[in-house]
Design a protein around this nucleic acid. Structure first.
Lengths: 347, 347
DNA sequence: CTGAAAGCGCTTACAG
DNA sequence: CTGAAAGCGCTTACAG
């Protein structure tokens, strides 16, 4: 009746070739160590039913001893995993960036999406970061600047939504358009008696920014002869330095239109230190509408943009492309969000 | 010589059961559609060598037609995937947060780590976010506050490094300790002739913050009878509102120590509007050392913390635990970073 | 309560 | 240049 005696006990799972010499412990290592099958390990690790308290405890102890952590890839492969969104930004320390990122995070979370962030401004290996982002996410949103073609290549099949493109984009994009607000602002400057405005652009002499061009044009069409100043960085420090130079050079000057709010904050600071009254002597205007602008004195007049709207449009495009409801090219995947003049004290 | 004729062409890969009705196309769908094997699809998708231009083009065309994107799980399972770090923060719109996040991102990127961010402050489903974060990352760093026990459970086997714990933590942690700087500050207040300081805490009457307690204690030991004011939120608005109340109530008052820089900015604004000179009438001090504090007038004196150091210690702990060089419990996985007094104009 | 089987979607050898 | 085989680490049925 009895068959030949089994000399070796039947092992529930084949022993792993080597118990991970160098690599992480796997579910089979734990199973072997605890003398159970891998699905019993799964039950213990995930708090599932159908396992005795004693077995569970023994498995968990072995798992801890082996420093076992389930692979997110193995698990994701079978469970499907979560939806993941990549966000490319330029410098988290610029107050604009977290304002945008926060809006994206909030909306994404509402839809059950996780967000991975890549700050490519301070990165020496931005290409690697973008590629890694693409490898870990289902869709990428962000500021791509002049590197968008290269990054679009790097991202391969991962759909991309560009924010604030500097020129007609090859992919989906959300334009952030200051043109209308600039017209309103120019009218406001005329109405308040400005005579000699300066545009403080964040750009190089070879390449004026789009918003710099729009500002100059709107002023010229109203009969102004505005000066255009190029500042290398869009920071408060740079804004302050350029303002010191401008004030030293120009006798007549009664308005400074800065490229963004952060630079305008530097302008305000430089004026304050030079004893120049804002808005009495010089009116100052920023762009972005950061809450920060209402913390300084005088509070900052600015061309505000609704970053919640930017985030909403971007996510809408991203999810639309993913679901197949939207194409991945062409006019159907372009949206526009416009600035609006936010009058505070500085102009 | 010739064998029996093959009536049906040999298919390189078995046809997928159904060409993904509802799900995403897989590599087998593309292989079938292009009439090649899956490894040829891999070659085409990943720009590998060993594939003819014609085949590659045909495969890529089919991939595009089927909207095929390789699964990051399938790929990660075999390639090992990247190292991924989770960061839990409280509110990206608070300027402190991006400053910290930026430091973590920069250091993580230097070591080839990607970062996933979860902002749990504005989230209704913070628990789900933390769990999702744990599922996608190898280690989690962050501000956990009173929810740290629950989240530690949720994270399961994912190691955790708590930042700025409010009390002795069960896990690895980086303390951010203002005690020394507060002593230096208190001496400074004495030296500059302050008589009637107020501590503006971000807390409830039932539970004063650690730093509030330290401030009160340091002042009392120097013979002061400081008043403690509880502000509900750590925002500029709240700081301004409380300051208005304090100014209306107290005739004698010559220093306000705010819970953080952002609140202190609100204090400065309220003083400015009330015609109270800072630092002439009232000295104002914040905590954090945000760059922002040097953009206002007067510039903000503050207890600064080196967030690069915080990020460095946190990453060091995280990577140490992951490599097994560090235990996952106990004193060995606790670090401390101290504030220091940064004297600017407001005190 | 526990385990044997199958399979998630990919890539990396290896063979031709 | 192309394909057959094996396997990454896990979970989900299913069988006992």
């Amino acid at each position: 009746m009895a068959g030949p005696p089994r000399l070796t006990p039947q092992h529930p799972d084949p022993l792993p070739a080597s118990s991970s010499p160098g690599g992480r412990a796997t579910i089979l290592d734990v199973a072997a160590a605890a003398g159970v099958s891998r699905q019993t390990v799964t039950r213990a690790m995930n708090g599932m039913s159908g396992i005795s308290a004693a077995t569970k405890q023994r498995v968990l102890a072995e798992a801890e001893r082996l420093d076992y952590r389930p692979s997110r890839f193995g698990r994701g492969l079978v469970t499907g995993g979560d939806h993941q969104l990549g966000l490319v930004v330029n410098d988290l320390r610029n107050p604009y960036t977290p304002q945008l990122a926060s809006a994206v995070f909030r909306l994404a979370a509402e839809q059950g999406w996780n967000v991975m962030l890549a700050d490519v401004d301070l990165a020496s290996d931005a290409d690697r970061m973008v590629q890694a982002l693409g490898a870990q996410t289902d869709v990428v949103i962000g500021y791509l600047g002049s590197r968008r073609e290269r990054w679009n290549e790097l991202l391969g099949t991962v759909p991309m939504v560009e924010l604030d493109p500097y020129a007609e984009p090859p992919t989906a994009a959300v334009w952030i358009d200051p043109a209308d607000a600039i017209e309103v602002l120019a009218d406001h400057l005329v109405a308040t008696g400005v005579r000699h405005p300066v545009v403080l652009d964040n750009s190089s002499p070879e390449h004026t920014s789009v918003r710099g061009v729009l500002m100059m044009d709107a002023l010229q069409r109203r009969g102004y002869l505005p000066e255009l100043v190029h500042a290398e960085h869009g920071t408060a420090e740079c804004g302050a330095e350029e303002t010191v130079r401008i004030l030293a050079r120009k006798r007549r000057l009664d308005a400074i239109l800065a490229f963004n709010d952060v630079m305008a904050l530097g302008v305000l600071q430089a004026c304050r230190r030079a004893g120049v009254d804002v808005p009495g002597d010089v009116r100052v205007v920023g762009v972005d509408g950061l809450p920060l602008g209402s913390l300084v004195a005088p509070t900052l007049t600015t061309l505000a943009v609704d970053l919640d709207a930017v985030a909403r449009e971007a996510l809408d495009l991203a999810l639309g492309m993913l679901s197949g409801a939207l194409p991945r090219q062409g006019a159907a995947v372009q949206r526009t969000v416009r600035h609006s003049l936010l009058l505070r004290e500085s102009a």
